[in-house]
Design a protein around this nucleic acid. Structure first.
Lengths: 201, 201
DNA sequence: CGAGAAATCTTGACACTGTCAAGTATTCGG
DNA sequence: CCGAATACTTGACAGTGTCAAGATTTCTCG
């Protein structure tokens, strides 16, 4: 049996998908359980067979979002050159946030409790290990300062995460944004933290 | 006339205050217009005499939050030594976020439209100029790399903002958090971006 | 195979929410 | 002092999350 085969078939995942769509279309404030249920073609309290409450659905949507974010970055980090991989991965992070604005906001909106959703914690830790691995490579190549890899990775992540948060918030002044495309701005921002080995381009 | 003197006296500010309190006590999801009104001692639609809708109240609360954040940082930036001032200001930013978790989340939750709330934009720009000024001082003292001050300031802000966002989100692993107090971790994170002039302590 | 158990889904209800329309009380301008 | 503007109340409406009770389908296992 691939999945269940009850009335609907695979309602749980259908709800996650419907929720993700609705999130992208309507924004984070308009995400209601009842609309999600309606879009999946079931009655308004059918979701309670699969999710304890609305938060549990949100956790599932966020978890799925983290998985997609992981894939974005994994593809970027496949680049052999560490310096380029770092820059690509950072840009992938930003791109994910732009392509999935509402979902990204939800993932980092601080709604989820600590260890309440194991799958969420798992993919979240996995993502951090991904950043650490990239950091290790960059340190080895002399592209990042030496030091504890977890702190360096956190520093890097903070930088990129803060950057995209501020951008989504509209907090980056137009003066700056009009001067260069966002990717260049990200590059310049990263350059504050990296060691210029070969200042190409 | 200091303020209005109608039935209530100064309902507008009372609502902002009540909202801020409720936010701190109940969290960002439980903030309802009706509860705010009740706490201020008026009926459930009295707020509509002063705010167009719930978002307008949220904008006012966020604006007030930004003002408090500005004060936090202004006090820290009064420190004469640029390096110390930077470190103090960064810590002040983190402290504000910890002391006003829900308010901080609200301020940066991406709910507010672009130029829809002029006062919010004003204090927001003022805050950025504050960071720029600090950045200028640090660049002059050789504590930050030279370059366009707005980009350097953005980089700095991104770093600290991302750091505290990830912390509030519970995204910083316990392995790291258990090793040292948060302030030290912030310092180490900042050290990735600064130039160690005198590696005291 | 088939009956009881479990899972899935529907219907209906409840309290709560944001918002608006209509009405009432208070204060202000001339 | 009176009309008008402002501040506030009451009542209503649609929409929300959640739960209880019932109906329907699938699973379990004797």
């Amino acid at each position: 049996m691939a999945k269940e085969q009850y009335h609907h078939g695979d309602l749980k995942n259908a709800l996650i998908r419907a929720g993700t769509e609705l999130l992208a279309e309507e924004g984070v404030t308009s995400l209601s359980l009842r609309q999600v249920a309606a879009r999946a073609g079931v009655s308004h309290s059918a979701p309670y067979a699969h999710f304890a409450d609305k938060q549990a659905l949100i956790a599932a949507i966020s978890t799925e979002g983290f998985r997609r974010l992981y894939d974005y970055m994994a593809e970027a980090a496949a680049e052999p050159d560490p310096a380029r991989a770092l820059e690509k991965a950072a840009w992938a992070y930003v791109q994910f946030a732009l392509d999935n604005r509402a979902c990204f906001q939800l993932m980092f909106s601080g709604i989820l409790e600590d260890g309440q959703y194991p799958e969420f914690s798992a993919i979240s830790h996995q993502s951090f290990r991904q950043i650490e691995e990239l950091t290790r490579r960059c340190q080895a190549a002399g592209y990042l300062r030496p030091g504890p890899v977890d702190v360096a990775a956190l520093s890097l992540w903070s930088q990129v995460h803060g950057f995209v948060c501020l951008y989504l918030e509209g907090q980056i002044s137009h003066t700056i944004l009009n001067r260069a495309p966002l990717r260049d701005l990200l590059r310049q921002t990263l350059r504050q933290i990296t060691i210029s080995t070969n200042p190409t381009e």
